[in-house]
């Protein structure tokens, strides 16, 4: 079972809770996906007073572990403040740390990310940093105390799937013991299966499910794909060959050609 910050997760799918047609469909999709963790974004409007408690109670009713995020934060200070607010509101020290460097591409600001990760780790947070596939940044994040890394495989919401498989492979190779969760950029169940086949520990996605014509069906499909990819990885994949090899043994032939 996947172990992150001392917590064992029964499923290797983490699902975001934004952009669904309705909370009812969100709840059905989460159930269909068998996800073990849901991410929630904290809007300032939700904190304090009578904010979004109805939505929050719906999330709670799913009885899953909640991973709040710092979506939309563009500076270290903003991300740290939001993380602290999220700890109060959601009652967890888990935080998916996003420090956005570019408003349009939502590319992580890796410099701010490392700094914010260090601050939050020192403050006792279990930090899940949303990062790129850069190995040096990954090392810095681990040095800052992170025990999990969440590399993108393509920009958030792009649905492109793994655009740089080589980089993902080398990341897996460099950090064989660190839980690696592919976050952002997955568009299809086959993308999820692909990164799981590469040996990634889990995937986190949102838009591909929330914006599907049938989010519940798509959530179920992603759940199966994650399981399939994981099982394939554990079962030892056949490496590609350059020549054809018949799968039917040629019994009864006198001479092999």
């Amino acid at each position: 079972m996947l172990d992150v910050y001392g917590t064992k997760l029964p499923s290797r799918l983490l699902l975001g809770t934004a952009q669904y047609p309705s909370p009812a469909i969100l709840a059905d999709a989460v159930k269909a996906s068998c996800a073990s963790v849901v991410t929630v974004s904290l809007r300032r409007e939700m904190a304090g007073g009578r904010g979004g408690e109805k939505f929050w109670s719906l999330i709670q009713s799913l009885r899953l572990r909640v991973l709040p995020n710092t979506a939309g934060c563009h500076s270290v200070k903003e991300a740290v403040t939001t993380a602290k607010m999220a700890r109060e509101v959601f009652g967890t020290n888990w935080i998916k740390l996003e420090v956005i460097g570019n408003h349009d591409t939502l590319q992580p600001d890796v410099f701010g990310l490392v700094e914010a990760a260090r601050i939050l780790r020192e403050d006792g947070f279990a930090v899940f940093p949303y990062t790129t596939d850069d190995l040096v940044v990954a090392e810095r994040l681990l040095a800052a105390g992170c025990q999990v890394l969440m590399p993108w495989c393509a920009p958030i919401g792009s649905a492109l799937g793994p655009v740089n498989v080589t980089a993902l492979r080398s990341m897996r190779g460099h950090f064989p013991e660190v839980p690696l969760i592919v976050d952002a950029g997955l568009g299809r169940p086959s993308h999820a299966a692909r990164v799981m086949e590469l040996g990634f520990d889990a995937v986190l996605l949102n838009t591909a499910v929330a914006k599907a014509a049938d989010p519940v069906g798509m959530a179920r499909a992603f759940g199966k794909a994650v399981d399939a990819g994981r099982e394939a990885y554990r079962s030892g994949l056949l490496e590609p060959r350059d020549v054809a090899v018949p799968s039917t043994p040629t019994i009864g032939r006198a001479v092999f050609q």
Partner: peptide, 10 residues
């Protein structure tokens, strides 16, 4: 925005 708050626009 999932919120009951009717405070001023941000």
């Amino acid at each position: 925005i999932e919120s009951l708050s009717a405070g001023p626009i941000t």
